[in-house]
Nucleic acid binder design. Structure first.
Lengths: 111, 111
DNA sequence: CTGAAGGTTCGATGACGGTCGTACTATGAA
DNA sequence: TTCATAGTACGACCGTCATCGAACCTTCAG
């Protein structure tokens, strides 16, 4: 009944129609962010921020998640203290047909 | 008969197998370079360096052509004083399937 | 030979972005 | 209430890159 002491944590997501190709390509042009995308693809669903294998610090990783979210690549929401991430696969496909699959395929092939 | 006073101008091109996804994405992530790629797609063949419509200076444009060439996106060769550019479409498709078409399609759709 | 057109090279500059550590907030468990 | 966990915000640092102008090189036409 009681309102929480503070507002629940929410996350802003852009409409894919508002996202530019420039944003999408810049987002995907960073190796750490591609790691995130690939691991998310492999997971096949949601994945907590802390469960990614990357070579950077937590605060840097937060930055990368923000970039990916603002580029429309991922969706984020809280569950308790955990922040869950998932790919906006269908929306990305509608906005930039073939782009995400091409990048993920090439990235996987390289690794 | 006489040998030219100086060696003819040649241009070095990487094998696509030596090009990384990182290079390709960085090359395509710049708006001026995407203009070049799109205008080259529209031309459907070769196009002289001076015939591109971009907002930057000649020397900057030279830089962008170098980046695109080293990323395996374009091929360049001289004819007289003119340098001709063409897309390495098939090779790019073999190395990064779907990537170039996806970017060009999205770029054209945005414009 | 001379001039002009087409590109390149070089150095400087300025902006942007990835990185980190530290301090902080929010949530849930004890 | 207290503590631990998960992640964020902020500021600083630093390297990289897009950009330019000026000087230069190469080729072809007179």
């Amino acid at each position: 009944m009681a309102r929480p002491r503070t507002t629940p944590r929410t996350v802003e997501h852009p409409e894919l129609s508002e996202v530019t190709l420039q944003q999408a390509l810049e987002a995907l042009a960073d190796p750490v962010r591609r790691m995130v995308v690939c691991q998310l693809t492999q997971a096949g669903g949601e994945k907590g921020c802390g469960t990614f294998d990357t070579p950077v610090s937590d605060s840097t990783l937060t930055h990368h998640f923000n970039v990916l979210r603002e580029a429309g690549v991922i969706r984020q929401h809280y569950r308790g203290t955990t922040k869950l991430n998932s790919l906006r696969t269908e929306e990305m496909e509608a906005r930039f047909p073939g782009l995400l699959p091409a990048v993920v395929t090439a990235a996987d092939a390289e690794a």
